[in-house]
Nucleic acid binder design. Structure first.
Lengths: 284, 284
DNA sequence: CCAAAAGTGTTTTCGGTACACCCATGT
DNA sequence: ACATGGGTGTACCGAAAACACTTTTGG
């Protein structure tokens, strides 16, 4: 039994009847006996559906890419997402979902926003989708109600990922950021917000460790920054700035086999990088 | 009936049995007929309890303050919080809760983090609290389960607020930031995170409009910044910097009746301020 | 008149940008 | 050899930090 049916919320519009305050377990009502009775009968609190969506960024051949999937029976693409387990933090759930899609562990992952607009999930579409799937439900069904979604963004090494579809998914593949297909619901908005956050974070947090392969050249790293920010940077200034953070180690070997002068190879200094992740980027 | 009982989640640990992907309404299972049957019988998706907590900052007499309340029958203090209505965005819910506590409308309000650690709500304590309230529930009861909470922080004009308690609340009052009493659950952590976010935001967003009275002097505004940041600033550099944003209007009158040279009074330029809220702080 | 607070101006420093020069490599 | 890309160094500019002087007010 769900209190939802009998009294909307514990915290109803007509606030003089029942009251529950958030983030505490102590509940109370004016009609305390009635409340007690309901709770003991096993009444539960009505809650919105909570899900999470991941914007997974990858980088390959000078292009920033996003991992998208297409659900069976659906025309539009979607961000990888999922639900949270009973004993699971959101961050853990997000990395679990990431692992399922990319096979990767220990990914850079960050929550950036919660999307709770009541109109974000178009009810009529939801119903339509279910008719498609040979289920008929009406607008009062929980499946047709508003979902609140926590947005995460992740940075992964493109070369180590093999996108994995599952029973529900037709396709799971990378898309160039400049060439995103129509997305379902407000996923386009989520994607944009993720990119906006990433661009801001770029100035305060070291990124690249997760996006670049083990070893890389300075121009390659610069291309990553340029792609994310959408601007061109000065080669020399970029190098000075990045090296100033002391999160890179220069390798002895250089890249060979390419035309022109052979560039140095760099890799991230694991320890310094982790330090910078905590403290932010500072000059020395 | 709740699917929670029969199959844990739609998205269970043993992932080969049932599957539901987040942020979509299209659900599917390997045993599709069983799934369909359950849904048509009115089965619902198990979801964590979602609440929101507000860290409400005020400023008075050179002290940064936070609005706290003490629940009936509880020793520890708590942040004002609440639940979300069915057709309501989180931001709307937060401003509703704020209005209930402070009586103020149109408050600067921002979500900054979601707190989902499974251990954040101490189950044993919850049960204890309910025994207190003459209810006996066990650890499997929904009231004893983990709540996920969305953290908001707000900046309000101290002088315009009269803290309002309600039927559940013994007291609702301001506390100096340096003198916060023990808080329930992880509310201390939420408070700290809010302050951390506020300090960062200070460089990019104009604040003060909500925290300061209608008219104020430059040293008063400086004191606010110093208090939030926890450092002392150079009087002259501060003035130049703030004025450079062109969000202040200097009044003709000066503050009188105080010792020493009478300072100018300033007030925020409503239009410029709103502009800066959207675009961030930029020099001209 | 004096101490303290407030208004206004100048110097210095530093990070970021712009740009010049040289070196290495494959064609 | 030479075009192209990569490594290294210098000049400049603007914002922020450091600091000096004057003005006003109550006591």
């Amino acid at each position: 039994m769900c209190l939802y049916d009998t009294m909307y919320y514990f915290y109803p519009e007509q606030r003089n009847e029942f009251l529950v305050l958030a983030s505490t377990f102590l509940c109370c009502m004016k009609d305390y006996e009635k409340f007690k009775q309901l709770v003991l009968q096993g009444a539960t609190l009505y809650m919105p559906q909570l899900s999470l969506d991941c914007v997974i960024f990858g980088f390959h051949e000078g292009q920033l890419k996003v991992l998208l999937l297409k659900m069976r029976n659906l025309q539009e693409w979607a961000l990888p997402g999922g639900f949270i387990y009973r004993q699971e933090a959101l961050e853990v759930a997000a990395s679990r979902i990431l692992k399922e899609r990319t096979g990767l562990d220990n990914i850079f992952l960050q929550q950036f926003h919660i999307f709770s607009d009541p109109t974000r999930s178009d009810t009529s579409k939801a119903i339509h989708h279910f008719s498609f799937a040979d289920l008929s439900i009406d607008s009062s069904h929980w499946l047709a109600q508003r979902f609140i979604s926590v947005g995460f963004y992740a940075l992964v090494d493109f070369t180590r990922v093999t996108p994995q579809a599952d029973e529900l998914t037709d396709t799971c593949q990378w898309y160039d950021l400049e060439n995103i297909p129509p997305l379902m619901m407000d996923h386009r908005h989520i994607l944009d917000k993720a990119l906006e956050t990433l661009r801001i974070q770029l100035n305060y947090q070291p990124i690249g460790m997760s996006l670049m392969p083990e070893q890389f050249t300075m121009p390659e790293l610069q291309k990553l920054y340029e792609t994310i920010l959408g601007v061109t940077l000065d080669r020399r200034n970029f190098q000075r700035k990045i090296l100033g953070y002391h999160i890179l180690k220069r390798r002895e070997v250089r890249r060979t086999g390419v035309a022109h002068k052979s560039p140095y190879l760099y890799s991230f200094d694991e320890k310094q990088y982790q330090q910078a992740l905590q403290d932010g980027l500072h000059k020395w």
